[in-house]
Amino acid sequence: MRKCKLSIVLALALTLFCALPALAEGPVKTLSGDITLAQAQKILAAAVKKAEAIKVPMNIAIVDAGGNLKAFYRQEDAFIGSIDISIKKAMTARYFNMSTRTLGSVSQPGQPLYGIEASNDGLILFAGGVLLVDANNVIIGAIGVSGGSVDEDESVAFAGAAVIK
């Protein structure tokens, strides 16, 4: 028992000792291929501008390359129920690297991905979730928009996504 405890202590000490040089370099601020907050804010601004132009109050969510919420904007009078939908649209697009419109079309009855909406604690399979792809053609996240018709949602998402390309 004593040897086992000593082995564990030595292993932990060695792990910490080996990690010290990496810690001295400082934390990694942004992973390669991930969206920055500045980019997310630029995308949000473009999406909000489009939503204002079409006069439809929207919820706009942006997720990073890992599908985690990076930025969110809820316009005045946007539906409360659309908050979750906008976030899930962005996550769905990123999880499967395709727009929610495209995923929705291949998940209808008789199609190869029928029933996929039940996975990942629920997915959204109608238009309004779009990938965010940078100038190097790298997926850096996704945008999800909800509050209008699916075509209005998608138009706002495309307006946001266009500024990053």
Score class of each variant (00 low, 15 high):
Val9Thr: 12
Ser86His: 00
Val56Ile: 14
Ala93Thr: 03
Glu76His: 03
Gly144Ile: 13
Ala90Arg: 09
Ile85Pro: 02
Asp121Ala: 14
Leu125Pro: 13
Asn136Gln: 15
Gly141Tyr: 08
Pro21Arg: 06
Ala159Arg: 09
Asn136Cys: 14
Thr15Lys: 05
Val48Ile: 13
Val106Ile: 12
Thr15Asn: 07
Ala11Glu: 05
Leu20Cys: 06
Val63Pro: 02
Gly144Phe: 12
Phe96Thr: 11
Asn120Trp: 08
Thr30Leu: 05
Gln39Thr: 12
Ala22Trp: 09
Val133Cys: 04
Ala161Met: 13
Ser149Leu: 11
Pro109His: 07
Leu69Asn: 08
Ile164Ala: 10
Thr36Lys: 01
Phe72Met: 09
Asn120Gln: 14
Asp84His: 03
Asp34Ser: 09
Gly33Asn: 06
Leu123Thr: 12
Ala127Asp: 10
Ile143Arg: 10
Ala161Thr: 15
Ala65Lys: 06
Glu152Met: 07
Ala53Leu: 13
Ala161Ser: 14
Arg2Ser: 12
Val63Met: 01
Asp134Gly: 02
Ala40Lys: 00
Leu20Asn: 01
Gln39Ala: 11
Ala162Phe: 00
Leu14Ile: 10
Gly141Thr: 07
Val150Met: 08
Met91Ala: 02
Ala127His: 12
Ala90Val: 09
Gly148Met: 04
Ile143Ala: 11
Asp153Gln: 14
Leu20Phe: 03
Arg101Cys: 09
Asn97Asp: 10
Val145Cys: 15
Ser86Phe: 04
Ala161Gln: 11
Ala162Gly: 06
Gly110Asn: 03
Leu10Cys: 01
Gln75Glu: 08
Ser82Pro: 00
Ile8Gly: 04
Gln111Arg: 10
Phe17Glu: 08
Cys18Leu: 11
Gly122Leu: 11
Thr36Asn: 06
Lys29Met: 06
Val130Leu: 14
Asp121Asn: 15
Arg2Cys: 08
Arg74Ala: 11
Ala61Asp: 06
Glu76Cys: 00
Ile35Trp: 02
Glu25Met: 10
Ile85Gly: 00
Leu132Gln: 14
Leu113Ala: 05
Leu20Gln: 06
Ala13Gly: 09
Glu154Cys: 12
Ile62His: 09
Asp134Phe: 03
Ala40Gly: 13
Val9Tyr: 00
Gly128Gln: 09
Gln75Gly: 09
Ala159Pro: 12
Leu16Asn: 07
Leu6His: 04
Gly33Pro: 02
Arg2Thr: 15
Thr36Glu: 11
Lys88Trp: 03
Glu76Tyr: 01
Lys29Ser: 11
Ala142Thr: 15
Gly115Lys: 00
Ser105Trp: 00
Asn68Gly: 05
Ala53Glu: 15
Ser82Arg: 01
Lys29Leu: 10
Gly148Asn: 03
Leu31Phe: 08
Thr92Lys: 02
Ile43Glu: 03
Ile139Asn: 05
Gly33Trp: 05
Thr15His: 09
Gly67Val: 11
Ala51Lys: 03
Thr100Ala: 07
Pro109Ile: 02
Val56Ala: 11
Ala19Gly: 04
Ala45Pro: 00
Arg94Phe: 03
Gln108Val: 05
Leu31Arg: 11
Leu132Ala: 09
Thr15Val: 04
Glu152Asp: 15
Ala61Gly: 04
Leu12Lys: 04
Gly26Ala: 00
Val150Trp: 02
Phe158Val: 12
Ile80Glu: 02
Gly110Cys: 02
Leu69Gln: 02
Ala93Met: 05
